[in-house]
Simulated scan of single mutants.
Amino acid sequence: MLVLLPPSEGKAASGRGAALELGSLSLPGLTAAREAVLTELVDLCAGDEDKAREVLGLSEGLRGEVAKNAELRTAGARPAGEIYTGVLYDALGLASLDAAAKERAAASLLVFSGLWGAVRVTDRIPSYRCSMGVRLPGLGALGAHWRAATASVLPEAAGSGLVLDLRSAAYAAAWKPKGETAARTATVRVLYAPTRKVVSHFNKATKGRIVRSLLTAGAAPGDPAELVEALRDLGYEVEAAAPARAGAAWTLDVLVNEVH
């Protein structure tokens, strides 16, 4: 099982660990594309601060993020699972998983990123600010940049098992499973049961809890149909139907009765 996650806007501080080693990150086929984004981002942020804030879409209150980006090559690095914070990651609670579940997380979780493309939670990265919606002056739109880079790398990472895609739309643009891989892919919507409306904040928390439940239980569904059964066994109310056409991803609706 491969679980695709969005990053978080807010991130923990880099700390005082050893600096980034770009070549040590998982998915080495993305190294050249990572170097291209890193180089342009660092140069941009080391230059005109106001231009950098405009390109990155940062408010005046986030001006310090520009200086942080300028030091990415020398800043301390920590496991990505410690860098990413926020609602989904709080609910996932990587640090409090038992040893076996942590091993499963290391093997199955992949976090998408405007800067790194995609990283494992064990990959050591510095704290940064660069969303997938950014358009860098030299490289252009990051979504398109990463689509080209991930086209051959991600299908290999997905292997022959289930792909559970929990990314937001902006990060889903970086790689869209196709063909046989798409047929093994499931996306999740979180709906408020009484109204069948999509929830927002609680959506992230529920997705984090789903991943934690699967990791803790040691569940290993091989395809979307098996995922539906695994989630129901774990106490989730799930509605799903096979896609109308071959080679299309499944959409699972997880129903919740609370939205806070």
Rank of each mutant, 00 (worst) to 15 (best):
M1L: 08
S8A: 15
S8Y: 04
G10S: 08
G10Q: 12
K11M: 05
K11E: 01
G23F: 07
S26N: 09
L27H: 07
L27K: 05
G29R: 08
A32I: 10
A32G: 12
A36N: 04
D43I: 12
L44S: 00
C45T: 02
G47V: 05
K51F: 07
A52S: 03
L56V: 01
L58T: 13
R63M: 12
E65V: 11
V66K: 03
E71F: 12
L72S: 06
L72Y: 12
P79A: 14
T85G: 09
L92A: 07
L92D: 04
L94C: 02
A99S: 15
A101W: 08
K102Q: 13
E103H: 10
E103Q: 12
R104W: 07
A106N: 09
V111C: 08
F112H: 15
W116H: 13
V119M: 05
R124D: 03
I125C: 09
I125M: 08
P126A: 06
S127N: 11
Y128Q: 04
R129A: 07
L136G: 04
P137E: 09
G140I: 12
H145I: 04
R147L: 10
A149V: 02
A151H: 11
V153Q: 11
P155N: 07
E156L: 15
G159N: 08
G159C: 05
V163R: 02
D165H: 10
A169L: 15
P177I: 11
K178P: 09
K178G: 13
T185R: 02
Y192N: 15
A193D: 15
A193W: 01
R196N: 11
K197E: 13
V199P: 03
H201M: 13
I210Q: 06
V211H: 06
R212N: 04
L215I: 09
A217M: 09
G218L: 02
A220C: 09
A225C: 06
R232V: 05
A246S: 14
L252V: 00
L255I: 05
N257S: 14
